[in-house]
């Protein structure tokens, strides 16, 4: 980005790993302690009859949430990278401006609107949540893959050609490895948005960590809301820290 952002690769890796360990430890502790925290929440919210969310296990909710985000994210990586690779080949070059227009327009749609509008198409439950998350996360991944491949220096491509690489080999051994940091940044953006949208997807019947929040809001149970919010925040920070750690590794590896 700019002079404001980038510290040295080695110190970035160390800081990222420390952050990941801290986030994982805190989140793990939160997850383990939550089922035993009834008396704490009863003390915090003395007027509530049921101070602890028990409709689903918290671990099951975390797994369902992660499953939804990971499955739709994987789908988006395949489609988004596939489209980006297609439009940067000679055969698909014509379609590039169309894909760029599409991603630019689609990204002005708020993720919640995409979620709401996909319900009429497939009904309630896992389906619309999966579709909305996958559709929305294709955009940053596709956009970043295009700009990552475009950013590969011509000299690297010529070197590959000089080594006698086929176009196929150049894609997998020159272009994609060099574009990897930018592609990964796009995947990070998608996952970060999707963790939030997956939580809101509880409103359309998907099982996720949003369930305690939605049920708590409907039943005036602030304790449920707080429990859901704490776990979602923890999960989001862990996933972000994990991406930061991977990106830092990659940067260090690319730097030499």
């Amino acid at each position: 980005m700019s002079a404001l952002a980038q510290p040295h690769p080695a110190s970035r890796t160390g800081a990222a790993m420390r952050r990941l360990v801290v986030a994982l430890t805190l989140f793990g502790a939160l997850l383990v302690a939550m089922p035993f925290s009834r008396s704490l929440f009863a003390w915090l919210f003395p007027r509530l009859e049921r101070p602890l969310y028990e409709q689903h296990g918290f671990v099951a909710l975390v797994l369902a949430h992660l499953g939804l985000v990971a499955a739709s994210g994987l789908c988006a990586v395949i489609v988004g990278m596939g489209a980006a690779i297609f439009v940067t080949r000679p055969a698909g070059r014509e379609f590039r401006s169309l894909i760029e227009t599409l991603t630019a327009i689609a990204q002005t749609f708020p993720p919640v609107a995409v979620l709401a509008l996909s319900v009429p198409m497939i009904g309630f439950g896992f389906g619309p949540a999966f579709l909305a998350l996958a559709l929305y996360s294709v955009l940053p991944i596709c956009e970043n893959t295009i700009s990552g491949i475009e950013g590969v220096p011509p000299s690297a491509m010529q070197a590959g050609e000089g080594l006698g690489m086929t176009p196929h080999e150049r894609l997998f051994r020159v272009e994609l490895p060099l574009a990897a940091p930018i592609i990964l940044a796009g995947v990070r953006t998608s996952f970060s948005i999707n963790i939030g949208t997956a939580a809101v997807a509880s409103t359309v019947g998907a099982v996720s960590l949003g369930a305690p929040i939605i049920i708590g809001l409907n039943g005036n149970n602030t304790a449920y809301v707080l429990q859901g919010a704490l776990l979602i925040t923890g999960l989001a920070l862990v996933v972000d820290a994990a991406f930061e750690a991977i990106q830092a590794r990659l940067q260090r590896w690319n730097a030499g």
């Binding site: 952002a5 970060s192 963790i195 929040i213 859901g228 919010a229 704490l230 979602i232 925040t233």
Partner: peptide
């Protein structure tokens, strides 16, 4: 002050990673 700027942006970046529905929930209590 670039040093202060970096720290401020890092802190605000952490807030950005918290999903909106969770931040609403955290503020509620």
């Amino acid at each position: 002050r670039p040093g202060l700027g970096r720290r401020t942006l890092a802190g605000l970046g952490v807030i950005q990673t918290i999903p909106s529905i969770a931040l609403f929930g955290l503020l509620m209590a």
